[in-house]
């Protein structure tokens, strides 16, 4: 009935409740009705990769010859770039929620303090916020895939196959972004994150196959997350999945697990002192 406490054993996590995770998700529906500000952010996050696709994919594509991948398949430049923009879109959509919005709720408006006074547990918050972020990311990618099919940059069947891959990408970046957000000291730290995100965007085999880089750089790129996201989505969207595709997916699954676990622990350590 009563424990005599020794040192600092943490408050124990009970069974996770889908109902409470759902409640954390639905907290985010209210603000959507709150006016245009949120929607501007939502829509701009979508258009960024689309503009890259149109300007670079089509513009530069007109100057560049077709691209021959290592497996011998030949793609137009736009076909090569489009899946990378799709993966980036999934990353941006999820991370917009789990970095800026998460940090704001965590540090400024104390949403999570309020939640934790109820039966809601830290890990349920992490799950709920991640699922919400993924929903947002998936909206972006569903529309983006539609555009790719319309522009004949992907076959319909392969576009359908690529959709769950983009969901996984959203989960992975959302989870890791959220984990980073629990470590941020202030808004200035987000500049670093934005820069890192942009560097990933430029160098992850997005605009050129990484085989063009020196071997040492290739190895570094192969360790970074967006490379695997682009790889997974490109293999599926262009219809050439193989064992490497499975490896890319595994990398992303690890990101989800580690990101969620870390976020839960950090929320506990920071808010349940």
């Amino acid at each position: 009935m009563v424990t005599t406490f020794v040192a600092t054993a943490g408050l124990r996590t009970g069974t996770l409740s889908p109902g409470r995770i759902g409640a954390v998700i639905s907290r985010n529906i209210g603000p959507l009705r709150s006016g245009p500000a949120y929607w501007v952010v939502l829509v701009s996050g979508f258009f960024e990769p689309l503009f890259y696709l149109l300007s670079i994919g089509l513009g530069v594509g007109a100057l560049v010859k077709n691209i021959t991948l290592v497996d011998g398949s030949v793609l137009s430049y736009a076909q090569f770039v489009a899946p990378a923009m799709l993966a980036t879109s999934a990353m941006n959509g999820a991370m917009a929620e789990t970095t800026f919005n998460f940090f704001f709720k965590f540090k400024y408006i104390k949403t999570y303090d309020a939640m934790l006074a109820t039966p809601v547990q830290p890990f349920e918050i992490a799950m709920g916020e991640l699922i919400w972020a993924m929903i947002r990311g998936s909206l972006y990618t569903a529309v983006f895939l539609g555009i790719m099919v319309a522009m004949k940059l992907a076959a319909f069947g392969w576009a359908v196959a690529a959709f769950p891959a983009t969901v996984l990408v959203g989960f992975a970046f959302g989870a890791v972004g959220m984990a980073f957000s629990t470590l941020m000291r202030g808004w200035q730290d987000f500049d670093l994150l934005t820069t890192a995100q942009f560097a990933l965007f430029l160098f992850s085999g997005t605009f050129a196959p990484i085989e063009n880089y020196p071997p040492a750089i290739q190895v570094i790129i192969e360790c970074t997350p967006l490379y695997h996201a682009v790889g997974l989505v490109r293999d599926l969207a262009t219809g050439v999945p193989d064992w490497a595709t499975v490896g890319h997916a595994a990398y992303l699954v690890v990101m989800v697990v580690v990101g969620l676990w870390f976020t839960g622990r950090r929320l506990e350590a920071m808010l349940l002192k």
């Binding site: 009563v2 005599t4 406490f5 054993a9 408050l11 124990r12 006074a117 808010l271 349940l272 002192k273």
Partner: peptide
């Protein structure tokens, strides 16, 4: 929402940690 460092505590007849 905070773990006691020492002593015993019971709320509504239950253990706040568990």
């Amino acid at each position: 929402v905070s773990t006691p460092t020492e002593g015993t505590l019971s709320i509504l007849g239950m253990d706040p940690v568990r």
